[in-house]
Amino acid sequence: MTHDYEIHTITNHGLGERLAAVSREAGARGGTIMVGLGSASSTLLRMLAIGDVEKDVLVTLVTAAEKDAVYNAITGNSLVRSRKHAGISYCIKLGDEPVDTNTHYELITVISNRGYAEDIMTAARKAGARGGTILHARGTGKPEDGKFFGITIVPEKETVLILAERTNSAAIKDAISTLPCLSTPGIGILYCTPVSEFRLLGKNAATDGKK
């Protein structure tokens, strides 16, 4: 089966499994849950060491026919609507069809060797990013096994996900790519993906989402 959309839902830790069940009831065939760190934009929260909290990242693949029902079930569920701030959810169009370049948001993804995520997020926030999610990962082989886009695959990696408005995504990308710590060739890669739909999760979703 060919899937047309990838739905990403970044929510409070512990809600991922429950939203995955909701998505299956709405027609999704399954999903993948990863645990990451949400990096808050508040300087005070970071100083108090409570700005970075665990988040569930639910990735759901759906067809075009399934997308609306599954997306509405996730974002409109009482599990998230009863909370003031419950995260975000957005859709990414898959396949070879032309991508709508008039979308309001882009997903900036940075994959780097472990230890650079905080520097990346600091630079992104200074350039206008409101926050991001950090995922810890492992490479797929030993250093001598090969390279991916010139990067030697090593065990420890960090993936930083930043949802940015198109109006300031270029500034955020420039701020990250010019970091001195990322100047060494092969230290990481950065790429962008247009986001077709975006919604806030929680009590304010009706007024702040659906862009």
Rank of each mutant, 00 (worst) to 15 (best):
V195G: 00
V154E: 15
Y71W: 06
G115S: 09
T103I: 09
A69I: 15
I7C: 11
E17M: 14
Y5F: 07
A73Q: 08
P185Q: 12
A124Q: 07
A69T: 09
P143E: 08
G14R: 10
A175M: 04
S89C: 04
I88N: 02
K67N: 03
K147P: 12
G27E: 13
M34F: 14
V99S: 05
R138N: 13
I10R: 03
T159V: 07
M47P: 06
T207C: 10
A40V: 12
V70F: 03
R81W: 02
K93W: 04
R166Q: 12
T43W: 05
G131E: 11
G141A: 04
A65M: 04
G202R: 02
E158F: 14
H13A: 15
S112C: 15
N102A: 09
Y71Q: 06
E158H: 12
Y71L: 05
L61V: 11
A206F: 06
T122A: 03
G87Y: 07
K157A: 04
G16C: 02
R138T: 11
G14K: 09
H104E: 10
V160F: 00
L200G: 05
S196V: 04
V110T: 03
I88P: 05
G27L: 14
G139L: 09
A171M: 14
V53I: 13
Y90A: 00
S183Y: 10
H3T: 05
S42H: 08
T122S: 09
H85E: 08
Y90V: 00
A206H: 14
T167D: 10
G139A: 00
I50V: 15
T159H: 07
M34T: 09
R83I: 15
S112I: 14
L79P: 11
A170M: 06
F148G: 03
I88M: 03
V35A: 08
G51Q: 07
Y5D: 05
K126F: 13
A175V: 15
I88L: 06
G131T: 11
L44W: 12
L44C: 08
R18Q: 07
I111Q: 14
G146L: 01
T140N: 01
T2M: 02
R46T: 14
K203R: 08
L61P: 01
L61M: 08
I108W: 01
R130E: 07
A205T: 07
P98R: 09
Y116S: 06
E54Y: 13
A171R: 03
T178C: 12
D56A: 12
E66W: 11
S169G: 10
I92F: 03
G139E: 02
D145Y: 08
G36P: 00
C91E: 07
T63Q: 01
V110S: 04
G16T: 00
L61G: 00
A86S: 08
I151S: 12
A164T: 05
A49C: 13
L15S: 05
I120F: 11
A129Y: 13
A49N: 13
G36N: 01
R46A: 08
S177P: 07
Y90Q: 00
L15Y: 05
S196I: 06
N102Y: 05
G14H: 06
G95F: 01
G30M: 03
A164L: 07
R83S: 03
I7K: 08
L163I: 10
I7Q: 02
